[in-house]
Amino acid sequence: MLYNKKGVVVDVSSVDAFTVRMDDTQKLHEGLSHAAVETALPKRGGTVLILRGAHRLRRGMLLERRSEDARAVVQLAGDLRVVEVSFDDVAEWVGGLGEQLDIADL
């Protein structure tokens, strides 16, 4: 059972199928779908990846968490624009900002 457990997405095999390595056991769980998981947000100042919407695949810094309306305020890497997205559309990024180019850098 994976309820209330943390893990890291290590591979995306299709639009709605990915592999997660669990933090506690290091075990891989393949073929998971977006409907089966909930994204996690870092503390203020942490790095995030935008998963959906106009800024999809952009990384940035979490400036603010608005729990009352489930919104995150993010400063995008690169052009430093500030955008607001749903909690469901953003997740903590555990890699470094310089590891790969953002989609906007291509």
Rank of each mutant, 00 (worst) to 15 (best):
M1H: 12
Y3V: 14
Y3I: 02
N4S: 10
N4V: 10
K6G: 12
G7W: 01
G7K: 00
V8K: 14
V9Y: 01
V9H: 01
V9R: 01
V9C: 10
V10I: 11
D11M: 06
D11A: 11
S13K: 10
S13M: 14
S14Y: 05
S14F: 03
V15A: 15
D16G: 04
A17N: 13
F18E: 03
T19Q: 08
T19V: 11
M22R: 01
D23V: 01
D23F: 03
K27W: 08
L28A: 06
H29G: 06
E30A: 06
E30M: 07
L32I: 12
S33M: 11
A35H: 10
A35K: 14
A35C: 11
A35N: 14
A35I: 10
A35M: 08
A36E: 15
A36S: 07
A36F: 11
V37P: 00
T39A: 02
A40R: 09
A40C: 15
L41D: 00
P42A: 00
P42I: 03
K43D: 09
R44A: 07
R44G: 04
T47W: 08
V48G: 01
V48H: 01
L49S: 08
I50P: 00
L51R: 11
L51E: 03
R52D: 04
R52V: 01
R52A: 05
A54L: 07
A54G: 05
R56M: 07
R56P: 00
R56F: 06
L57C: 02
L57N: 11
G60C: 05
M61I: 13
L62Y: 05
L63R: 12
E64L: 15
R66C: 08
S67H: 06
S67W: 15
S67R: 10
S67E: 15
E68K: 15
D69Q: 12
D69W: 02
R71V: 10
R71P: 01
A72I: 04
V73R: 03
V73P: 04
V73E: 02
V74R: 00
V74Y: 01
V74W: 00
G78F: 01
D79P: 07
L80S: 13
L80Q: 09
L80R: 15
L80Y: 07
R81L: 14
V83I: 13
V83L: 05
V85E: 11
F87P: 01
F87H: 09
F87M: 04
D89T: 06
D89N: 07
A91E: 05
A91H: 02
E92W: 03
E92S: 00
W93G: 10
V94L: 02
G96E: 14
G96K: 12
G96Y: 07
L97T: 03
L97V: 13
G98L: 03
G98F: 05
G98C: 00
E99H: 12
E99Y: 05
E99T: 13
Q100I: 09
Q100L: 10
L101C: 09
D102P: 02
D102Y: 07
D102M: 09
A104Y: 09
A104D: 14
A104N: 09
D105N: 05
L106R: 14
L106T: 15
